[in-house]
Write a protein that binds this DNA or RNA. Structure first.
Lengths: 363, 363
DNA sequence: CGGTGTCATGACATCGGTGTCATTGCGTGC
DNA sequence: GCACGCAATGACACCGATGTCATGACACCG
């Protein structure tokens, strides 16, 4: 690879002058500039990042640690793949900041994190984004005390800046939406009770129900945690069985995430219960691959991963530029309720169970 | 950040000796080694990658270009998210090679690729993996002639090494599986006809059908291309309508991908046709989020993205180490047929349409 | 006991850029 | 006509590592 010396020799100037043309930080005559530019083109010269950063002591790199790439085939992980949207959001912001994102993957193994951070340190990253696969307390002590960090989708109790989803607010808004349609008997198939998201969302669910003057019925809340395990479908089956064997079955079912809703669709079909004609179903996440493709399309609460990534990146850049020192160290990002065909008013349920195949119109 | 000089001063040795301890490339007395190690720990010293690479003229970096991260919410893209599994496969191999993967994202915009490659050149990447979002001819001329490259999920006509899925073989094997169950009337909802995958898979489908002595019925093949568009469900609905309004409706439906199969499940349910009791359904991709979660679970052909990524990375590393110059420049990777509940023999169809809700056992 | 080989270590140059300071040439004001 | 200022450029040191070569201290051999 050509160096600045090669360019200088070819253009008949000193290396320093080539440097000036590159950076435009000092006056260079038009003639000289032209000669240098031509020499650079002829040689295919590209400046060496390494040489620059060694002198300036600035790498222009932002490290990002995620398990998303390796978790991608881990159906067992509750949130699963969408974590990548966080990466996407961060990438979009970093891209506009003259910095380069260095993405590393844990390979799903937390014990690799220290190695990854070590590699980042070798590259002298200026800041670090740590992305958890789902909303939870940080599950390890991050080394690299001197690197500014922003946590995403997780949080610690040391005051490290963190960006998390507003799970309570999201489930609250979604439940309000269900209630607004007229539902009073609302079942809730939650994710694992120990999960942060489950705790927060259940709080939002209860708040919405209470505000509507509906008595909370614990029998209508069932955890279905064995995600991706062979017994999962059976667990959901049993939970639905409980709901529908009671005297007053629910007219709407909230699901812990869209994936769960997808399984519920299939099991309800086998059970002979039509969605949304006999029961409305809503999810959580707005995993569009699921929510938009399911038939009928799924009403769900958006898990604002992309916005979280973007916000975290902004926060980090702000910290790096010496900006306002963490005003609040945990930022909660809210998402929208996505209204689709799976949620309808209970009054119109049971009125159009027979749908003609032909002549049907798309809603 | 501490330098090798700081460490040397603290340990009372020369910088070169510290270097020797770091690299273990020359004998150092045990006493000295201990002093140096302690100094490094005390100062939190981490060697500078930039300084190393400037001297050795080796960056140890492999560039990877993908649109996966940004495409992640693009339901409209046929293959969509799974492209990430390619990244995962590559990552896993690179990780074991003492190299660091530099991942960049096109943001879905091909015109950004030259910029990304320029950034890679500044970092002096030693090789480049270019990953397309679905199997297709390379859609742009890649700059950076002097960088060894491997294409993944795409190919050009310049002889650049490429790793692609064996679409024909995959559909052939899957169709053979359907036929082996006893099906003779097999419908096929394809992806867009112009797609590479569609052409190849259709070839595999026809080959399997022909080998079984089944006459190819063009009416049973319907393209359903408007992916993710609002009219998509309608298009599938119409195609299914055609299939089932004939005299001898199909007993099995092959779908262009798992997402399509998911939509088919919902529409068949609305139509009152049970899967797999009345019709078997198979997909393509083995997008596990879908194939394992759908109820009943989906029989499908694996799109071996992870293996493709791994193979491509191996190939690139081999080229970098001056290994065998591209023996064959297009490597086709085959995937397995994943047998799940959605495909059953036609004889047993229609025999168990009524399933009791309770007492059911998981298969 | 002197020559020789090995071990352990350091001095110095070098990689590809950039910061600092010096130098040259030319127009301008008095 | 001379001092001065500014534009344009170059010489040189330096960033943090490592390669090359030299050096001093021993041990071993004849």
């Amino acid at each position: 690879m050509a160096t600045i010396y090669d360019v200088a020799k070819r253009a008949g100037v000193s290396p320093k002058t080539v440097s000036r043309v590159l950076n435009g930080d000092a006056p260079v005559s038009a003639r000289t500039k032209k000669a240098v530019t031509e020499a650079m083109d002829a040689l295919g010269y590209v400046p060496s990042h390494a040489a620059r950063s060694i002198k300036s002591n600035k790498s222009g790199l932002i490290g990002l640690i995620t398990g998303a790439i390796s978790n991608a085939d881990e159906v067992a992980t509750p949130a699963g793949l969408p974590e990548l949207f966080i990466v996407q959001g961060a990438q979009a912001v970093i891209e506009h900041s003259q910095k380069t994102l260095l993405i590393s993957d844990t390979g799903g193994r937390l014990d690799r994190v220290p190695d990854l951070i070590r590699t980042f340190q070798e590259h002298r990253v200026e800041g670090l984004l740590y992305i958890a696969d789902y909303h939870k307390p940080l599950d390890l002590a991050l080394p690299g005390h001197d690197i500014p960090k922003v946590l995403v989708n997780c949080f610690d109790d040391l005051g490290t800046p963190a960006v998390v989803p507003d799970d309570e607010g999201g489930q609250y808004a979604l439940t309000k939406e269900v209630i607004a349609k007229g539902h009073r008997r609302i079942a809730y198939l939650t994710l694992a009770p120990a999960m942060e998201a489950t705790k927060l969302r259940l709080r939002g669910f209860k708040r919405a129900v209470a505000e509507a003057g509906i008595a909370f019925d614990a029998d209508l809340v069932q955890p279905t945690d064995l995600f991706g395990s062979p017994g999962e479908h059976q667990l959901i089956w049993d939970a639905l069985d409980k709901f529908f064997s009671g005297d007053t079955p629910p007219t709407a079912i909230c699901c812990g995430n869209d994936r769960l809703a997808m399984a519920v669709y299939g099991i309800l079909r086998r059970r002979g219960i039509a969605v949304p004609e006999e029961v409305s179903v809503v999810g959580y996440d707005d995993h569009r691959l699921i929510s938009e493709t399911l038939y009928p399309a799924l009403t769900t609460a958006e898990l604002p991963y992309s916005a979280m990534g973007a916000r975290a990146a902004q926060l980090l850049l702000q910290i790096l530029s010496g900006g306002a020192a963490a005003p609040e160290n945990r930022v909660r990002i809210g998402g929208e309720v996505k209204r689709r065909a799976s949620l309808v008013a209970p009054e119109i349920q049971n009125t159009k169970k027979i749908i003609s195949f032909k002549g049907r119109t798309e809603t």
